[in-house]
């Protein structure tokens, strides 16, 4: 009984981790770009939402209507203006440039907002819960986050495998030069992909900040969760990312149940086990 509860709560938390991971998986899948600043963009989105909801007097959820487009635009411009210049056979430039961006964002947030712990508010939904059959109470908000993660992934999966834009994404990922021959402007497609990645990052950041507290230095560990979810899931499909997130969430929940100090460590251990047993993840890409 207790364990079922733990696994359900952990699985739901995995929905949030999957949302963290989508942006990372997208930019790696399409541009082979690992964005070290990914976690800091999650936190940046939370701060933007905080300003928007305070400024307009709306709830954090409603602020998504502003934060998502804003982060999409930021992602587009960042890729077009900076990150496209770093792509090539050498892995150092993208890595070190996003690393630099990460440090810049963290310290700008620190200068602007101080090191205080912040939280976003979304009203009554934060505390409501429903009773599942079997008497297990789950929070409405975690459930909502999980459902959103499933919807997002289904949507991405559809766009990727059923639309012209998705074909262009996959073609640019396979062979950017040949994609250009088809009329695909790779700089634009990459920027779009980063825009989309950043839109999901915005959603993840706001939901995360409603669920837990955050501060300017909260980014790196979110990058690590996202990374672990991606590696556990493998790069075969976005559904793998969801499974990866859920495994990470469940491992953390089990760890936390044993002892609070074990929560995060248990997640890392799950990651290590997958890395050692099956380095390409549970749902690997068949070709790379």
């Amino acid at each position: 009984m207790g364990w079922v509860n733990i696994i359900i709560q952990g699985g739901l938390l995995g929905g949030l981790y999957a949302l963290f991971a989508i942006g990372l998986a997208l930019s790696f899948g399409i541009m082979r770009l690992v964005n070290i600043a990914h976690g800091d963009f999650i936190v940046l989105s939370a701060f933007v939402a905080m300003i928007v909801s305070a400024g307009l007097g709306i709830s954090a959820i409603a602020s998504l209507a502003v934060v998502i487009p804003a982060m999409f635009a930021l992602g587009y411009l960042l890729q077009r203006g900076i990150l496209n210049l770093t792509l090539g056979s050498d892995i150092l430039p993208p890595l070190l440039v996003t690393f630099g961006i990460s440090v810049i964002i963290q310290n700008l947030l620190l200068e602007g907002f101080g090191a205080d712990i912040q939280r976003l508010h979304a009203g009554a939904i934060e505390t409501e819960s429903v009773i599942l059959p079997g008497g297990i109470a789950v929070g409405v908000f975690p459930l909502l986050v999980f459902v959103l993660a499933v919807v997002c992934i289904a949507g991405l999966q559809f766009v990727f495998y059923r639309t012209g834009l998705g074909r262009a994404f996959r073609a640019a990922s396979d062979d950017p030069d040949t994609a250009e021959l088809m009329g695909v402007d790779k700089r634009h497609i990459y920027a779009l992909a980063m825009g989309v990645a950043m839109a999901f990052t915005a959603l993840a950041g706001v939901l995360f900040a409603i669920r837990t507290t955050f501060e300017p230095s909260s980014g790196p560990i979110r990058l690590i969760y996202a990374f672990e979810a991606v590696i556990i899931g493998g790069l075969g499909s976005f559904w793998g990312t969801l499974v990866g997130g859920m495994i990470l969430g469940i491992a953390q929940a089990i760890g936390a149940a044993l002892s609070p100090t074990w929560q995060i460590l248990a997640g890392h251990i799950a990651f290590l086990v997958v890395l050692i047993v099956k380095p390409s993840g549970l749902f690997p890409r068949t070709r790379d």
Binding site: G164, R167, A171, D174, T178, L181, M182, G183
Partner: peptide, 26 residues
Amino acid sequence: AMVPEGRRLFPSLSVEENLKIGGYCG
């Protein structure tokens, strides 16, 4: 349009998807 040396089909696209992306420019 160009048929590149070595064909360079997109491996993760099906045959029909390869043809369709050929028409991407509209």
